[in-house]
């Protein structure tokens, strides 16, 4: 695997930012690149792990902001 270029292209692919035409080329390259495939798998796995850290704020924040907006007056 050409580490610098391919790893960055794999990251772009995982995050949906690789242009379509480059995606097809990447797939072709990965057919013969087990190291690249392993990297793709690990980046995707880290992405899944990171996704578990998504959190929501309390409803009070939304209510406070909406109240602030409803009563907002420019000083």
């Amino acid at each position: 695997m050409t580490k610098k270029i391919t790893q960055e292209r794999i990251i772009q692919f995982v995050y949906g930012e690789l242009p379509f035409e480059e995606t097809a080329a990447l797939f072709d390259e990965l057919d013969n690149d087990t190291e690249g495939l392993d990297y793709l798998e690990s980046v995707a796995g880290i992405g899944t792990l990171l996704g578990s850290l998504m959190v929501s704020p309390s409803k009070a924040i939304r209510d406070n902001v909406l109240a602030f907006s409803a009563h907002f007056t420019e000083e």
Binding site: L53, V55, S56, P57, I61, V65, L66
Partner: peptide, 26 residues
Amino acid sequence: EKALAVLIARHQDKLFSAIYVLVRNR
């Protein structure tokens, strides 16, 4: 005002998760 409620609902988890990971305090 309802448009703001929609904008908040649409993006609050992304914004909050990003901030939370950076400051590590809810």
